[in-house]
Design a protein around this nucleic acid. Structure first.
Ligand SMILES: [Mn+2]
Ligand SMILES: [Mn+2]
Ligand SMILES: [Mn+2]
Ligand SMILES: [Mn+2]
Lengths: 223, 223
DNA sequence: AAATATTTTTAGACTTATCTAAAAATATTT
DNA sequence: AAATATTTTTAGATAAGTCTAAAAATATTT
């Protein structure tokens, strides 16, 4: 249906559109798909002719309904494959992304559906990101950044802001993985680093950089 | 490493090389990869420069060790994916090939190894074809065509010669799938059609066309 | 409002893989 | 051995996607 490259552009534009309401500009897309602005202009014209997005010279782009549909479908495939790699093939959460970047372009509706079923219709991928349903519906978890919790509050690690391999490896090493229950003990006034409570014999000091990049599902407060 | 297209050419040439010792000619390759002879000449020059095959104008081609290595690796990936699709995702054996044609080009040694392990290091794909080992070793089953069995001889269905979707569907419908035990009852002198015995209440008449395309592992003879 | 800086687009070229049509080489008939 | 047929290669185009360098448009400073 749509090429490898087209799907990548649509996905990139979709993600940029997610994190800001403004029209998406050429440079941002170029950065995102790792190419040059001139190439983006060419591709954007082509996608516009195919009615996958609206493009006005010097004004940036906006996905059409069909463009958004393709983008979300690609995200769905990406996250289902990441889940497969992690839960079935035992890839660690910092290694699944690159392979899923390839697998997400395999063309077969039936394959996606059967994979979904095989995985037990998962709601989230290994990074806590929601897996869009067949119809494109996205059930966003109501998560907050760990640095938004106050002293005494609890939460369960449910996602990450930073998806980089280094960060994911760092969390893994410290056993700060999805599902982990955390209680805030103390927030440093000096550097906003946070002391957390994991269990009777495990406390930990997390830098502000780290806590800002962890998403938690807020739990009950203790005092 | 090597492109989608390069892998497909190498695989096609490898398979042609398998079924005849002679040098592989341009037209055969063109037929195999569904393109035109002129395109084959272009690609063959390129693969020759990359030392994946030996090419002499008007004399056909022959894979080098490296070319063969890549071809077998691609076959390995293809058959592992077919096995995955069949045994884990419940695709029928006549639908796995087309999707595996895409999946076989995913680049990741680790993925192949983990998939192999996840599947329990299968020896054969859903069509009975041997899955090459990591080191390229291929353990060919010692199978014979069903029409080579004599009256009273037994065999277990272990593969097919014809891999077409229509043929596979036909076998499936008649429950002539891998592992099925068969005894030859009678071979018609008129049209070489064969009556087979499956169990107490199931006999069947198979055309010569069908029996020639079924591979069996020969069993003990009864009389 | 000019001048300057930044962003975006155009122009033209390159790569990979493909095609058609014509030319060259090889194989088969007569 | 010629004539004819078939196969293979070359020549020249095309499409998708990319690039650099220059031109045009827009944004920011002064
Ligand atoms: Mn990812
Ligand atoms: Mn993810
Ligand atoms: Mn196959
Ligand atoms: Mn097969």
């Amino acid at each position: 249906m749509y090429s490898f490259t087209e799907e990548n552009y649509l996905k990139a534009i979709y993600k940029l559109q997610e994190q800001s309401d403004a029209n998406i500009n050429t440079n941002a897309i170029a950065l995102s798909v790792q190419t040059k602005a001139a190439s983006v202009t060419d591709m954007v014209k082509k996608l516009s002719e195919k009615k996958l997005l609206k493009y006005e010279k010097y004004k940036g782009v906006e996905l059409t309904a069909e463009g958004k549909r393709v983008a979300i479908e690609t995200v769905r495939k990406h996250r289902l494959w990441e889940t497969f790699l992690h839960t079935k093939l035992n890839f660690s959460w910092d290694t699944v992304h690159d392979i899923a970047e390839q697998l997400e372009h395999i063309q077969s509706q039936e394959l996606v559906d059967k994979l979904d079923e095989f995985l037990g219709f998962p709601k989230h991928d290994p990074h806590g990101d929601p897996i869009p349903a067949r119809d494109g519906e996205i059930q966003r978890g109501n998560f907050v950044q760990l640095n938004e919790l106050k002293t005494g509050e609890e939460g369960v690690i449910s996602g990450v802001v930073n998806h980089s391999s280094v960060f994911l490896k760092h969390l893994e090493k410290n056993e700060l993985t999805l599902g982990k229950k955390i209680r805030i003990m103390e927030i440093s006034e000096f550097d906003q680093s946070v002391q957390i409570w994991l269990n009777e014999n495990s406390k930990m000091q997390l830098s502000n950089e780290v806590v800002r990049n962890i998403l938690v599902k807020k739990g009950i407060s203790y005092e």
